[in-house]
Amino acid sequence: MFVIFTLLLSGCSSLTVLNPKGPAARTLSDTIIFSILMMIGILVVVYVLYIFMLTKYRARKSNEGYEPPHEEGNKWLEILWTAIPIVIVAILSVVTVKTTVAVEKVPEGYENQKPLVIYASSSNWKWHFSYPEEGIETVNYVNIPTNRPIEFRLYSFGPITSFWIPQLHGQKYAMSDMVTKLNMVADEPGSMLGRNANFSGEGFAHMEFEALAMSPADYEEWVKDVKDTAPELTQDEFNKLLKTEHVGRMTFSTNHLEFSPPPEGHHHGGDSNGNEEHQGHKELHPDPATTEETEFDSESNVNPDEPLPTSPAEESSTHQHDGH
C-alpha cells in the first residue's frame, strides 16, 4: 500500500494539491509530503509490531494449554511510547506553525512589490471579482498577472463559501459579515481551476471559476481591453445579478465596490498600522448599535495603497485610514 501511495504521490500530476503553480501552494505541498512521509514511518512501526504479534502469538494446536503470563505493564516501555510521539508532535508543531505563518503572509521574495488587490465575493452560486485598482469587474473567472503578489479579499452575499484555487493556495472562508484575506503569487502562466469548497446550497457543485495567470504585459493588455470594450456595471444590474442563481462569464468596465461596499467597517477589524504587537490588543467590538452602518458605510476599504496588514485576523482598515 505504501509503495502504491508514494508512487502515486510522486508520479501523478492529477493530484492538483501536490502540483503547485505558486510559492504558497508549494509550501503547502511540501508540508503535506513531509507529513505523509513521517506518518508512513509511524504506520510501519505499528504494522511491523502488529504482524509480529499476530503471527507469533496466535493460538495453534502446538501451543494448546499454554497459559499466557499476567502482565501489569512496563513503566519504561510505556514512557517510551509516550515520549516518542511527543517528540514527533513537537516536530510537526514547529513545521505547522512556521508554514501557517508563512502562507498567511505575502510569499517570500515578493514583499517589496505592491500587491494587486482583488475582491472575490460570492452570491448564490457564482463568484464576483472586483479589481479596485483597475476599476473593472469579472464574474466566474479571474485573470491575474504572474510573479506579482495577489491579495484576495473575500466576502459573501449569503451563506459561508470557501474560496479555493488549489494550485495557488489553500482555501479560506468568505462570510457575509467580515472580509478575510488570502495572499498568493502565481509563478507561471496558465489556467487553473478555482471553486467554492464549502457547501452553500443547491447549486454548490457548479460553483467553479477559472483562474488564469498571464504575463504582466498580457494582463495589462487585457485590463485595457476590458476598460475599452466591456459594459458598465450599474447598481440595478448588479442587484439583478445577485439574485440570479447561475451565470456564465461576465466582464464589466466598472465594479460594484462603489455602491455596494464590502463589509469592512471599523467594528470589523483592528488597527491598520500593520504592527502585530499592537494589533494583538485591539478587540473586535461588534456593537449592535453600529451594525446598521455596515450597509451605508461609505468608508469602504477599497484603497489598495494603504499599508498591508500582516494577517487576515487583523483585518485592516477603518476609521483611521483616509478613504479615497
Binding site: 510505556e78 511510547w81 508532535v89 508543531s93 506553525v97 501557517t100 498567511e104 487576515p312 485576523a313
Partner: peptide, 29 residues
C-alpha cells in the same frame, strides 16, 4: 479556514496533535 490568523490556528493545531499521544499509548498497550 475561517481566517482567525496563524497564532490561533497554531494553538489549535498543537492541542489537536497532542491527542495523538494518548491515543498512541492505547494502540501500543
Amino acid at each position: 479556514t475561517m481566517g482567525q490568523g496563524a497564532m490561533v490556528n497554531g494553538f489549535f493545531s498543537i492541542t489537536t496533535m497532542a491527542i495523538a499521544v494518548p491515543t498512541g499509548v492505547k494502540i501500543f498497550n
